[in-house]
Design a protein around this nucleic acid. Structure first.
Lengths: 235, 235
DNA sequence: CGGATGTTTCGGCCGGGGCCGAAGCATCCG
DNA sequence: CGGATGCTTCGGCCCCGGCCGAAACATCCG
């Protein structure tokens, strides 16, 4: 009979959704879907570190809660987050969790390549990710406000010159700039649509590419040189 | 050892906070604290429908998770939400829960004042918040685009006449207009820098003020009249 | 000081739910 | 058609954690 024996309470019931997020396996599934990509049940099982059987049960619950949407295709079932509101709520919670120091697993990656540069969701992390952030901040292209980080006037000019069209990014709902705590460096790097755009730009220039089946980002020789030039440290 | 047997993942761990929200008793406690008031352990036990012994354990966990803050006073312990970020995250989740049909039984906060007008982040929420949105939309001052909401030409004129200088808002990175799902009304209200500016303007006119230690926004008599006049419903 | 009130700790009960392997469907492909 | 691959269902194990009452602490008050 639980604690609801008293008269009705009011308001939305957070606990249903909270319970969904409260299981580590389900949280991993949702985090994996934050990339925006549609992933199959099997891929999500692997991401969450559980067997397909267990994942299937979790996916059913998440679907029933309205947090994810299935899309059947052949013998695969692809899942995506159920909408922008879900993604937004997850981001908000992630911000809160990060702020409270609730981070997933502790020890940094042993692989030096992974420490140097890797994909974090869809932006650059690792030494290179922190370097981008430090460079932009040190040159006054980014500024830290009370609530977060934002692009300055000179920063807007820089982005355009670098080849990033800000207009579509700013009309989208996703925040342009967002801080993300780098887990190997334990410092801040840049996320948000600008962070994603920078990584995409580096890949388009063929300065860097993501290795197959890995989060490692590998720089070409030219790419490394260009990167150093375009993201210098102030002073 | 749970499902984290695989190597490191990155990013914040939602599941810790999710687990906190996932218990109905704890969700009730947090919901009660959404009023912004400080409540004692006993009051929270009663609100959540559990014994003081059980509540004590929950409160300790919530405190350890950084979601609530204790304030000892005499033989009472008062608790409040740990900050605006927590309140904001809860509000976001409540909107999502309401949208998904996860209701407890009635809608929104018990406190009628809180339902009428309250602060959501930095803009107006509640009946008054929805009224602002409906009024501007109905009079063609706002328009709904594919991605979100934006100010129309007449809307810009209205804002200026109302005493809001749009120039600094538009040069800032933060979106001018943004929709936000209202937790008590379950409808859209206006967020973004314009939403914040409108609330600030109402306060500057002394039409409304935020009550101490509460999220409630209280209107003066003059203020209520002026509000009705300036935010009429179309037709 | 002693009794009233508020809060926490302790011990023990109990149920929900996460986990897996094996078997059962569904789908694709040669 | 039959074998591979992806996903779900079923059955059973097991542990986490919520719940309470009783008793211990803490604080106020007369």
């Amino acid at each position: 009979m639980g604690p609801q024996h008293r008269t009705m309470k009011e308001g939305p019931d957070i606990s249903r959704i909270g319970a969904m997020l409260g299981d580590p396996a389900r949280a991993n599934i949702l985090t994996a879907l934050m990339s925006g990509k549609a992933l199959t049940a099997g891929e999500l099982a692997y991401e969450a570190g559980i067997t397909p059987a267990t994942a299937s049960g979790h996916l059913r619950k998440l679907e029933e809660s309205g947090l994810i949407l299935p899309r059947k295709q052949g013998r695969h079932r692809y899942f995506t987050l159920a909408g922008d509101e879900v993604a937004h709520a997850l981001e908000t919670l992630m911000g809160l969790a990060a702020e409270r120091g609730h981070l997933r697993s502790r020890i940094g990656p042993r692989d030096p390549d992974l420490r140097a540069a890797r994909v974090c969701y869809d932006h650059m992390a690792g030494t290179a990710g922190v370097r981008i952030f430090d460079s932009l901040l040190g040159r006054g292209l980014l500024e830290l406000g009370g609530t977060g980080v934002s692009l300055t006037g000179p920063g807007r000019a820089w982005a355009t010159a670098f080849g990033i069209d800000l207009a579509p990014l700013e009309s989208a709902r996703r925040p342009l700039c967002r801080t993300c705590l780098d887990w190997s460096e334990r410092r801040t790097h840049l996320a948000g649509s600008l962070g994603a755009a920078i990584l995409a730009n580096l890949q388009a220039r063929r300065w860097a590419q993501r290795l197959q089946n890995s989060r490692v980002i590998s720089f070409s020789d030219d790419g490394r040189a260009g990167f150093e030039t375009h993201f210098p440290l102030a002073n």
